[in-house]
Simulated assay, not measured.
Amino acid sequence: MDRHEDERMAFDFSLRIMPNAYASFQTMSGMANMRQKTHVALDGNDDLCLLVHRGGHPIQMRLHDRRHGRDEVTVGPGGPAHLRGNEERYSAWSLESHSQVICVSRAQITAAVGNLDHALDNGVPQSAALDLLCGYARTLASDIGPLGGEALLQARKTLTDLFILAIGPGRDAMEATKDSARAAKLARIKEDIGNNLAHPDLSLDWIAGRHGLSPRAVRDLFYASSANFTDHVLAARLERAHQRLCDPRLAHHSITAIAYQSGFGDLSWFNQAFRRRYRMTPSEVRRFGPAAPSA
């Protein structure tokens, strides 16, 4: 990365790295990046990366060694996402721009994509599938804690399948990617629930409306993962309360306040549900602090 001309240089970045895949979200300005022949020859990287504009000013790119299409590419508001491979390129973020980069192994998607050359030459148009991919990638790149073992492999599979859906799957791959699409929808819904645990309108109907789904569709997404909406919301609220009770920075908050902050409107119900889950009262958990057992 280099400074772009005389613009103010700024960079904010979040990243999730997985085997043969990664997802990042960044805000950049006053920066430029050049990938030259020597880089291409040395690293042997043949990943496919999708650059998606998420706000702010457009991103300017100059490309080389492409068989078709224009050498000059602008990735901006409302336009297609840019799919790039292992070519030489120069990218410039002169003024502040928000973007996502999602990369997967070319070998893992080539056979599954309907027309990869068309996407490389023309970009990936805005669509519900691209929006689903970006939402899932943003969740992965955010601070959701470490992923390991089976969870990490499943996250990579879901990201790769959504990548295929966004580009345009071949007929044989369409059915194989449906489970990942459902998993990504459920992940976005769970993230939305987590961000709105104390919202007075939080309900199955409210969440369904926010995601353009019917209440039955949301219920079915939870059932397919051996869960249900009501139990998930309760568990998330209890976990939020437990975390807050163990946080010494919130020692000045009363237990009643923490219950309300976590989405409980009935203190008696909160105490009952909390003790059933953690086998301790909220007061006991607060007394033990971080040493208190979690479910």
Rank of each mutant, 00 (worst) to 15 (best):
G289P: 07
V218T: 12
G76H: 03
A198G: 07
E87W: 06
L48Y: 02
I167V: 15
D46S: 02
S91I: 15
V124E: 00
N122P: 11
A92N: 08
K37P: 02
R89A: 10
L48Q: 02
L50T: 01
G30L: 09
M61E: 01
A217I: 00
P80R: 00
Q126P: 06
A155G: 05
P215G: 06
S225V: 10
A21E: 05
L15Y: 15
N115R: 04
I189E: 12
H211G: 05
P80T: 00
N45Y: 03
I189C: 10
I258A: 14
E7W: 07
E175S: 14
L204F: 06
V113I: 13
G168M: 04
M1R: 06
S180M: 09
D12L: 14
F264P: 01
V52E: 13
Y223P: 00
T139A: 13
F229N: 02
A259P: 03
R171A: 15
S214K: 14
A128E: 11
P215V: 08
S203E: 03
L162G: 02
G114T: 00
R138T: 15
N122R: 09
A224L: 11
R62P: 05
V218P: 15
R138H: 15
G85H: 05
N20F: 09
G79L: 03
A273G: 06
Q108I: 07
D161N: 10
R66H: 09
M280A: 15
V40Q: 10
P80E: 03
T158V: 14
